[in-house]
């Protein structure tokens, strides 16, 4: 019991095994994202084995075209969830943006001004969410359930029961044709472009690091000079404006808009982000995981539709994937805990 025994010195070498740290990005890739890659490959193999046409380029165009708006909305939501908040108003904002655009366009505004106004509405709506969450201090899940109803309601006031059509065909065609010379949908290209930006911002900039810190330990982030509230406000604004942009894309793709465009999509978007490995508690997740999740859901949907499987099966598949995405990372620990308990009782 002499005092110079270095008893409290940690022997950290064996620690990395015990602790499940989120060290280098490549090590994170070994976990959830690698499973996603396998699932994606599985989905593609499965699709092509069931339908010889599945791997043709047109199908990739279709997948991109069908997933575009949901995928684009998933990106800002990824960042929002990274900070431990949630935005359930995304699909309503998409609908509101389309409604504003349609309303103004049908009232004689130029299409460009109408689109600009829709984006402004996105900024304003996002600011409402952001201020209520960050400044007033309300839980984002409650706030955005409220704005989910509010935004959709405003869209309904503006547009119901009309359907606005007659948008310039020069613009609406971009929703339904691939980029010339390729089989890439415009919305898919925009999504990929935004995903690269989101990936760089999240994984390689001070802002991205701040988001992670906020998600993991908001107080420590604040004590490190990170302007937690300001960042949250701007994230909600970003979410609003990007969803408004997705609303414009959807309106152009459909060449028409009614107040209920995209109703119920919020849960799809949330499901994709979570399936992509983003922790609902914040601080953990990668953009590549979300991109993979988008690809998997899109490919499975396309494969199942083309094989003419009942659409309900798609819901079940999404649900099961979602469940697995949270249970597996915790599965090992749960088993260990149960074993411990059994031993303790024995």
């Amino acid at each position: 019991m002499t005092s110079d025994l270095p008893t409290m010195t940690p022997v950290t070498h064996s620690h990395s095994v015990v602790e499940n740290g989120n060290g280098a990005p490549w090590r994170a890739l070994l976990r959830w994202e690698s499973a996603l890659v396998v699932v994606l490959i599985g989905a593609l193999v499965f699709g092509s084995s069931e339908s010889p046409n599945f791997l043709n380029p047109t199908n990739f165009f279709y997948i991109g075209m069908n997933m575009g708006e949901v995928a684009i909305m998933a990106l800002p939501l990824t960042l929002v969830i990274m900070t431990g908040e949630i935005d359930l108003s995304v699909a309503s904002m998409l609908g509101l943006s389309g409604a504003v655009m349609g309303y103004l366009f049908s009232n004689g505004w130029s299409i460009w001004l109408a689109m600009a106004a829709a984006l402004v509405v996105g900024v304003l709506g996002g600011a409402v969410n952001g201020l209520l969450v960050a400044k007033v201090g309300l839980p984002s899940i409650a706030v955005t359930i409220g704005t989910l109803a509010l935004f959709r309601g405003i869209a309904e006031i503006l547009l119901a029961p009309r359907t606005v059509t007659g948008f310039p065909s020069s613009l609406t065609t971009i929703g339904v044709v691939p980029i010339p010379g390729t089989q890439i949908a415009y919305s898919a290209a925009i999504f990929l472009g935004l995903a690269v930006v989101a990936g760089i911002v999240l994984h390689a900039t001070p802002l991205g690091r701040a988001l992670v810190a906020i998600g993991l330990q908001p107080e420590a982030a604040q004590f490190s000079g990170i302007r937690v509230n300001r960042i949250k406000i701007w994230l909600f604004v970003l979410s609003g404006v990007v969803c408004a942009f997705a609303g414009i894309l959807l309106t152009l793709k459909n060449a028409s808009v009614s107040y209920d465009a995209g109703t119920g999509l919020e849960l799809n978007v949330v499901a994709i982000v979570l399936f992509g490995g983003v922790s609902i508690f914040g601080g953990r997740g990668t953009v590549i995981g979300v991109v993979l999740a988008v690809a998997i859901v899109g490919a499975l949907q396309q494969a199942l539709t083309q094989m003419n499987v009942q659409p309900e099966v798609q819901n079940i598949v999404i649900g099961v994937l979602l469940l697995i995405s949270v249970v597996i990372p915790n599965g090992g620990e749960a088993i260990r805990r149960i074993r411990d308990r059994a031993r303790r009782h024995a």
Binding site: T9, P10, T12, H15, S16, G23, A24
Partner: peptide, 15 residues
Amino acid sequence: RFSRMGNTVSTLSGG
């Protein structure tokens, strides 16, 4: 005193 820079700080002792 640490083993790897990439380890989480939670693996370190208080000091």
